[in-house]
Nucleic acid binder design. Structure first.
Lengths: 221, 221
DNA sequence: TCTTTCTGAGTTGCATGCAATTTCCGGTGC
DNA sequence: GCACCGGAAATTGCATGCAACTCAGAAAGA
C-alpha cells in the first residue's frame, strides 16, 4: 500500500491539514467539519478528531467544545503579538548563536547568506523564500537549543502566509538580504548583543512590511 | 453529575493526567496504557487517546506510534535546554514588562513582591512556591504578549517538579526573594535591559540550584 | 549455551453506532 | 417588523468492536 511518509493516519492527517492551513487552502475562520474532512481524506471521523485535537494544541486550529473546530483566526492584535514573539525568540536564537556556533556552522551560515545575494538580485521571491527558511533555520540550529528552535519554527509556520506575501513587494528582497548581512556579521564576529539587535530589527521590519500590506489591502476595497 | 470545571471528558482527562505528571504522581518514563487509564478514570479509550495526543503535542507525553505513550523523560541535556529557554523567554518578558507595564500593573507587582518577603522569612516553601507562580505570572502579563506568556507558562509547568524541590534548600527562599528584588527594581524603573539581565540571572540561578541537587542525588546513591 | 524463528497474548489504530447537545428554521405573539 | 419559542436535523462526544501490529516467551536449530 501507499505507506506514505507519516506512520499513522492521524499523523498524516494532522500534517496534511496543517499544510492546507499554512498555505491558505483552508482560510482562517473556516469551519472544520469532522465528517467532511473524513470523507475528503477517505478515513473515519476518529483519526480526524485526533488530528484536530493535536492541531488545536499547536494553535493552528481553535477547538470549541461541542461546537466544532475552526481554522484559527488571528486578529490584527494577535498577529502583532505573534510577530513580536517571533522577533524576540529569533533574536534570542541569534544572540545564543553568536555565542555558541561552531566554526563549521559559522562558515555554512556565511555561505548560505552569500548564495542568497544572487537570489535577491535575480528577484525570485519563491526561491528566496525557500532559502530564507534555510537561513533562519541555520540560526536556530546554531543556538543549540531545541526548545527555542521548536518555538521559532512553530511561529514561522503560523506566520508563513503573511511573511511570504511581503517578499513580492518591490525591493523587499534586497533589503531583506541587507538586514541578514547585519545579522551574519554580528554572529560571525561573536558580538552577541549586536546579533540580537540586528535580528530583532530584521523581523520587526518584516512585521512593518506585512502590516503595511494589510492596511493597503483593507483600504483598497 | 459532577460536572467539574472542564467541559468534555477529554479535556478533564488531559488536565488530570497533566497534573499527575507535573506533580510527579506519574514518573517520567512511566508507560501510559490506554485501557488502564480508561479504567482508572471510568471512561472508554477514546477520550483517553485524544487527551494523550493533546499532551503529546505539548511535550508532557511522548507518543510512539503503535508502541504506546510514555511520560516524557528529560535527559540532563534536555533539562538544561528547557531551563535556558525558560530563562530567555522570561527575561524577554521582563524586558517587555519594563517597557510596557501600566502603573497599576507596576504597583501590583511591587505589592506582590513585598508580600513575599514575609513568606520567605517564615520559610514556608509551599506558600512561597504558590506566590512565586503569581509573581512570574504578573511579569508575563505585564509583557502584554499572550504568545510569549503561553510559552513561558508551558515551560514553567514542565519544569515544576524540578523547581519546586529546590525551594526546600536552606536559604534558597531568601536568595530567590533578593533576586526578585533586582527584577522588580529594574521593571519599576523602566530599565529594560537591566530587567532582562536580572531575570536571566534569577532563572539561571534556579537552574544551577536544581543541577546541584540532581548531582548530589546521583552521587548519594 | 546462544541465536533465531514462530506463535500467541496484549495493545494500538481505526471504523462504526448511539446518545446528548447544538444549530437551524418555521411559527407564534407582541 | 422583531423577539421569542419549540422541534427537527445536524454535529459532536463517547463507547464498543475488530483488524493490524508489537513484543514476550517458547521452541527449534547451531
Amino acid at each position: 500500500m501507499d505507506e506514505a511518509a507519516g506512520r499513522t493516519r492521524t499523523e498524516r492527517l494532522a500534517a496534511e491539514i496543517a499544510e492546507a492551513i499554512v498555505t491558505g487552502a483552508l482560510a482562517p475562520g473556516h469551519r472544520l467539519d469532522e465528517q467532511a474532512l473524513a470523507d475528503r481524506y477517505g478515513v473515519s471521523r476518529t483519526p480526524v478528531r485526533e488530528a484536530l485535537r493535536q492541531l488545536g494544541t499547536s494553535g493552528l486550529v481553535e477547538m470549541r467544545p461541542r461546537r466544532g473546530a475552526v481554522v484559527a483566526q488571528v486578529t490584527p492584535e494577535q498577529l502583532a503579538e505573534l510577530f513580536v514573539a517571533m522577533a524576540e525568540i529569533e533574536a534570542t536564537c541569534a544572540r545564543l548563536a553568536a555565542q555558541s556556533m561552531s566554526p563549521l556552522e559559522r562558515r555554512r551560515l556565511d555561505a548560505l547568506h552569500d548564495a542568497m545575494a544572487d537570489l535577491a538580485a535575480s528577484d525570485d521571491p519563491a526561491a528566496y523564500a525557500r532559502a530564507n527558511t534555510a537561513f533562519h533555520g541555520a540560526v536556530y540550529a546554531g543556538a543549540h537549543n531545541a526548545v527555542l528552535a521548536d518555538f521559532a519554527l512553530g511561529l514561522r509556520r503560523r506566520l508563513q502566509p503573511y511573511r511570504e506575501a511581503q517578499f513580492r513587494l518591490a525591493g523587499r528582497l534586497a533589503r531583506s538580504h541587507a538586514e541578514h548581512g547585519a545579522v551574519v556579521a554580528a554572529i560571525l564576529g561573536g558580538r552577541a548583543e549586536e546579533a540580537h539587535a540586528a535580528m530583532l530589527r530584521h523581523v520587526t521590519l518584516v512585521e512593518s512590511s506585512v502590516e503595511g500590506m494589510l492596511v493597503r489591502e483593507a483600504g483598497g476595497r
